[in-house]
Design a protein around this nucleic acid. Structure first.
Length: 549
RNA sequence: UGGGGAGUCGCCAAGCGGUAAGGCAACAGACUUUGACUCUGUCAUGCGAAGGUUCGAUCCCUUCCUCCCCAGCCA
């Protein structure tokens, strides 16, 4: 279930005003990822904002790869990003690469040089850093700042021609070394990198920097509202400077919103990559990862993510959202979509001693009690079943109304059973229960003779399908005060358990989602699940107000 | 410290001078063949602080405090 929110936000207000004032004829936004890693839930926010705002105003949205740094980028990432955006449910109007515009960017840099607004600098990276000044002190002009236009033109052409080594020269914008905004202190706009680019191969050995390339990309595509996160706020004057000084015919404007943070969640691409590279997780799509592909494998739906993001709103605040809020939206979505079924995660065998030895009966069960239209199915029941270990206590805790010696409970969709004997192994561990059932209490029979407090789930032992359950917790524990990510890794983020599901799940397919009664929502793992050995990923557990004290 | 941004319930977030929406979480109760769902209640005399303007301020002014971002030839 996806909600439609008609609430506005400060960006939509700006767009509305621009349209009304005639400043903008056509709304064009873009999602501009750098293909240097996989997309995560934070990017999902940006994707939703860009696509949905454009849609609200009958505009267009481009998917544009900001591939200006060949050292970090790879086609593997561009393919993954395309898949993730599409899976989230968005269709881009134009598919572009910053590298499509390298030639024009070069030409615009030449325009800058000719106007005396850019110069080739021989200073080393270290020297540039040292002369940039500090937060409180202005920087110093480079000794190469006053080279003639002719010399700059010649040097820049030779940079492109490959006459210089990496780091030997850069092209810098000539703005103001004493600006209180450090981004305006003659920022580097081109650097030399003799590296093979995933798109342009070895055609180029100089690459534009983000601050120079991004505004040009937007202007070239006719982007009307360039939406980015808050940390780019200080770049805005530079963004406007580049478009103006490069004499771009279309003028784009940048607006910033607060990025998404989630509790106990790593949102740093750099660190996520590290987890992948070091094998801490099973790749970018490990179900514990906050990546789009990880959430997909975990079992989240695109609708739940979109609704979550929409309900978050668009603001300039920078808070940390409770992961419980994301969980709420996936529960809400799956509540009406996921078939109900029974699975026993930690099995305890129960023998129903008064049930005929070789009898098997089929019981009716609703596919989803909340959605009668989903119909019913039949599940087998016989003398031996498995129940959850947690659903039995030899010495019951306070307010415990599940199974214990002498107590009667309802078996979901089946009969009342009462526990008579407890079988233990040599260590005193309970290994089996002997119960009796009451044939009159059959589910659906309308029996009202007596009531029981508890209903527990079960799986018929004979037809049970052994499966693997993967139970997840967040990758991090504690809070920021507890240290860096490395100190906060949760050792229990994955627990693998072997149990049983009913025969009705024999045909479950990868990515099928179910609600196991009284447990939670699970997804059939698409990577490790086979027809013979099914793996179920815990998406989110059901809420519970009961705690054994 | 210079520049930029933000401070409304535990979290997110409306509010745009007329007397604090909503969602998440939490708690209490009802219902229950999921201790789920659903339903019903409770949950900021208060909007970072202190002054001021005003009949009236979360919204305007002043000062102060706290947090986040910027000193990559990353994006």
């Amino acid at each position: 279930m996806e909600t439609t929110s008609n609430s506005s936000d400060f960006i939509r207000e700006i767009v509305k005003e621009d349209l009304q004032a005639g400043k903008v004829q056509q709304v064009v936004t873009r999602f501009p990822p750098e293909p240097n890693g996989y997309l995560h839930i934070g990017h999902a926010k940006s994707i939703c904002i860009n696509f949905e705002i454009a849609k609200d105003f009958n505009g267009k949205t481009n998917l544009r790869f900001d591939d200006t740094n060949p050292l970090k980028e790879d086609v593997e990432y561009v393919n993954a990003i395309k898949e993730d955006v599409a899976w989230l449910g968005f269709t881009w109007d134009g598919l572009f690469f910053a590298s499509d515009y390298f030639e024009e960017m070069y030409d615009r840099a030449v325009v800058l040089i000719k106007k005396g607004n850019a110069f080739v600098d021989d200073l080393s990276a270290e020297e540039i850093r040292q002369t940039r000044g500090t937060l409180t002190e202005p920087g110093q002009n480079s000794p190469f700042r006053d080279r003639t236009v002719e010399e700059n033109l010649d040097l820049f052409a030779r940079m492109r021609a490959g006459e210089f080594k990496d780091g030997e020269k850069v092209l810098r914008a000539k703005i103001d070394m004493s600006s209180p905004n450090i981004n305006l202190r003659d920022p580097v706009i081109y650097r030399i990198a003799h590296a093979t680019h995933h798109n342009t191969g070895d055609k180029w050995c100089i690459y534009p920097m983000y601050a120079f390339a991004h505004p040009l990309e937007d202007a070239i595509e006719g982007v009307s509202h360039s939406l980015c996160t808050l940390e780019f706020k200080d770049q805005r004057p530079l963004y406007d400077w580049v478009i103006r000084e490069c004499e771009m015919p279309h003028i784009s404007h940048q607006y910033e919103f607060g990025r998404l943070s989630l509790t106990d969640t790593i949102m740093s691409k750099r660190y996520l990559k590290k987890l992948v590279d070091e094998g801490v997780v099973d790749g970018w799509d490990d179900p514990r990862m906050p990546t789009i592909s990880g959430l997909r494998r975990r079992g989240f739906t695109p609708e739940s993510i979109r609704t979550f993001v929409r309900e978050l709103g668009v603001t300039v605040g920078s808070g940390e959202v409770d992961y419980k809020m994301l969980e709420h939206y996936i529960r809400e979505d799956l509540k009406l979509k996921a078939p109900r079924t029974m699975g026993v995660i930690r099995p305890l065998k129960v023998v129903i001693t008064n049930y005929p030895e070789d009898q098997v009966e089929l019981l009716d069960a609703e596919v989803n009690p909340e959605v009668p239209e989903m119909g019913t199915k039949q599940i087998p029941f016989s003398r031996e079943i498995y129940i959850e270990q947690d659903d039995f206590m030899e010495v019951p805790a306070a307010k415990y109304f599940r199974l214990f010696p002498g107590n009667e409970v309802r078996l979901k969709n089946a009969y009342f059973i009462k526990c008579h004997d407890v079988v233990k192994d040599e260590n005193g561990q309970v290994v089996e229960l002997h119960c009796t059932y009451d044939v009159e209490t059959k589910s659906g029979s309308g029996f009202t003779g007596r009531k029981v407090k508890g209903t527990i789930h079960w799986v018929d032992a004979k037809s049970a399908v052994p499966v693997e359950f993967r139970l997840y917790e967040s990758l991090l524990t504690g809070s920021k005060e507890d240290g860096d990510f490395i100190d906060r890794m949760n050792p229990n983020s994955l627990e693998v358990v072997h149990g049983y599901v009913g025969a009705d799940l024999q045909t479950a397919q990868p990515q099928d989602k179910f609600q196991f009664f009284r447990h939670g929502y699970f997804n059939v793992d698409p990577k490790d699940s086979t027809p013979e050995h099914k793996v179920f990923n815990l998406i989110v557990s059901l809420k519970s107000s009961f705690q054994i004290k």
